[in-house]
Design a protein around this nucleic acid. Sequence first.
RNA 1: GCCGAAGUGGCGGAACUGGGAGACGCGCUGGACUCAAAAUCCAGUGGGGCCACGCCCCGUGCGGGUUCGAUCCCCGCCUUCGGCACCA
Length: 818
Amino acid sequence: MSERYDPKTIEPKWQEVWARERAFAVPNPVAPGEEDVGHTYVLEMLPYPSGELHMGHVKNYTLGDVIAHVRRRSGFRVLRPMGYDAFGLPAENAAIREGGHPRLVTERNIAAIREQMHRMGWAIDWDREVSTHEPEYYRWTQWLFLKLFGEGLAYRKEAGVNWCPVDQTVLANEQVIDGHCERCGAEVERKSLEQWFFRITAYADRLLEEMDLLESWPERVLTMQRNWIGRSEGAEVVFHIEETEVDLPVFTTRPDTLFGATFFVLAPEHPLVPSLVAGTPHEDEVLEYVRHAALRPAAERADPEKEKTGVFTGRFVTNPVNEERLPIWVSDYVLMEYGTGAIMAVPAHDERDFEFATRFELPVRVVVVPAGGEPDEGAAFVGHSEDERLVDSAQFSGTSSAEAKPAIVEWLEGRGLGRPAVSFRLRDWLLSRQRYWGCPIPIVYCDRCGVVPVPEEDLPVLLPEVEEYVPKGRSPLAAAEDWVRAACPRCGGEARRETDTMDTFVDSSWYFIRYTDPHNDRAPWDPRIADYWLPVNQYIGGVEHAILHLLYARFFVKVLNDVGLLGFREPFLRLFTQGMIHYLGAKMAKSKGNVISPDEIVARHGADAVRLYILFIGPADEDIEWQDRGIEGMSRFLGRLWRLGLEVAGRGAVAHPDDAPLVRRAHETIARVTDDIGRRFQFNTPIAAISELVNDVYRAKDDPERAGEVRLATETAVSLVQPYAPHVAEELWERLGHERLWTQPWPEADPALLEHETFELVVQVNGRVRDRVEVPVGMPEAELVARAKELPRVRSHLDGKEIRKEIVVPGKLVNLVV
RNA sequence: GCCGAAGUGGCGGAACUGGGAGACGCGCUGGACUCAAAAUCCAGUGGGGCCACGCCCCGUGCGGGUUCGAUCCCCGCCUUCGGCACCA
């Protein structure tokens, strides 16, 4: 009885058994169309192999493990795969830092991560492992690119792009945070380059509407995506320049304020600006301003604190509602990327326009007033109230904003001067990267044929070996001259390959589909197999992917559904976003030097204790603070369970009465743990519940009369703890005389045992608890009240006063009001 | 500024549908075992009070409200965190 709990021996033992027996492999059904007992797809976001696993991964994959184990033992076929997001900036930068070739560094990291994953005992189907940098994978990434190209959803255009001077590459809008590079923090510059884009804006409406198809996503993630897509309803209104006969449409959400427009503003990048001022006295000044604006750092230009700048063009437009001539200005507070790059300025009802008007002494004309209130002269009235009214707006005066909006648009539409319009904040997804370590874009440029896609049968376009992969402003692939030179697939003439690679997020926008059919070499997947497993029933990952990855993957699936390759429209039905791990008051990060290495902690306490602790420490969806001493509590808990298990195992099987107290406790614990994990998605409380059960059993273990119930309760605790601490659970299960706990049915609570013959009646006086008393279940209400009144402590509080009200909640409490 | 989430012991946190606040764990205090330590076990641990081996009062950010009864619902504030932010 002196054998100590020693994770160092039991953990490797079971890891070997699982590997040998391929315990968690789940083959595809032979006939995928046939429905089986029930199947489910549990997926966690795949890691970047830019280093080894950190505590965030441990939390992520342990969460997935618990869910997968419980569902597997509940009778589902569970798909629970794993892979590596191997291409891209994180891995490449790690390689440059360490001075090795990205492929070697990446593959070394993958080997280390795979080892860590085994060491954690995660129940992964290793037969489905994929890595996005392997030709067998990225061949199909290229294939999918060509699909999108064929559908007109991948296109090339010259565009002002976000350029990171440190990473020496273009960034997607989503990768720019406050004007700085998401990865390295450098200030992003503007640059004009020919780049590849995916037309995600074509799906803006569907990305919003089809949120209805999702079963359970965190509200904040949906809000973030909604904000990012930024749908605004309004109108497009055409302003006209009479001198040059040019139309200048604007987008506005406030057509009700059209009569308040006092000037007009173009973005500096607006294509009509040069022709507008050509040959006029304003030409030099305006063009100088345009040049200056282009050079201004994006962050400075976007800062609303900075005073507005601008310049008058000398031209005027005509306001279509009242024929008034409005001066045209150019200012960089108007963005070319949004709406039409031109605005009507209504300083009385827009803060930015108001600021500009104040700065340049332009008129302010109030056309909407709050009912009964006077407009504030010193600021724009942008507020919305139920009963605001239009003034000085011709026939629309006196109507409310809500009424005026459609009325004015309708009036304009009748004259061909406007129409209802919707505008989005979302921009197309820029996927070109001037970096080496990525999926080559399967395109060649031919002088005669132009942009030519590489034929499907020529895929993959292999990433060439190059000596110099450090970024220098143009793609390192350009240096592989033999590779760049290619025959045009169309005319056979001389052509050049595209030398940019794809954004990593392209690779990860479809990996969850590849897992379903990972070895298919004739297609990216068999649609019957993909449709069998997908959509993912439970997706788990960090909230940092709330917009990037999760939006891109949704876009991809919608496109693939539209072209008939998938039978569903949303990739992830349920999403769980786990919180981050903090240590010493800050987010764990290498740069802050406050990283706790899972390897060290596992070496010291064992994988089971780490798995338990990381989920016990707090709610899984909130940020948590790692506390060094905390894990010792979990080790102690496992030690207690271990000693209990060995002692019980040593005694052999003993019968127990069905309704013994510990048997009831065991069933109550089953009910609670199952409900918490399955319905409430809570992972810390089950550990507390099991711990409570073990404490109770531990106290009773030396009573020979109770050996039977002690055994049953111990076995229950072992069975329930298995998803969290699979190694120790497996070892104890074996010692208790059973086999392969991971294949055993998840315990079910017997409803009969959850019902008690008696319950503890809470007795309140005026809503305050005064006493408790054990009473039989089903006692009539009148009798409950009578029993309550008899209690001496209750009587002293009643103090002979008249009882005005008796509230009885059967099975719970009696409240007497005096 | 706009949107969202959250404020509970010394600490992490629990409390399911409006019904016993503080489960579980950390830390701490006292005790047992031990030559001693480690490990383990037992008891205690929100604050205050008293005619003190039991009972009373207060207590879930602050101020109100609804209710027999509020950590939970409503109104107003304060604080913290997250997202968005010249998007017309």
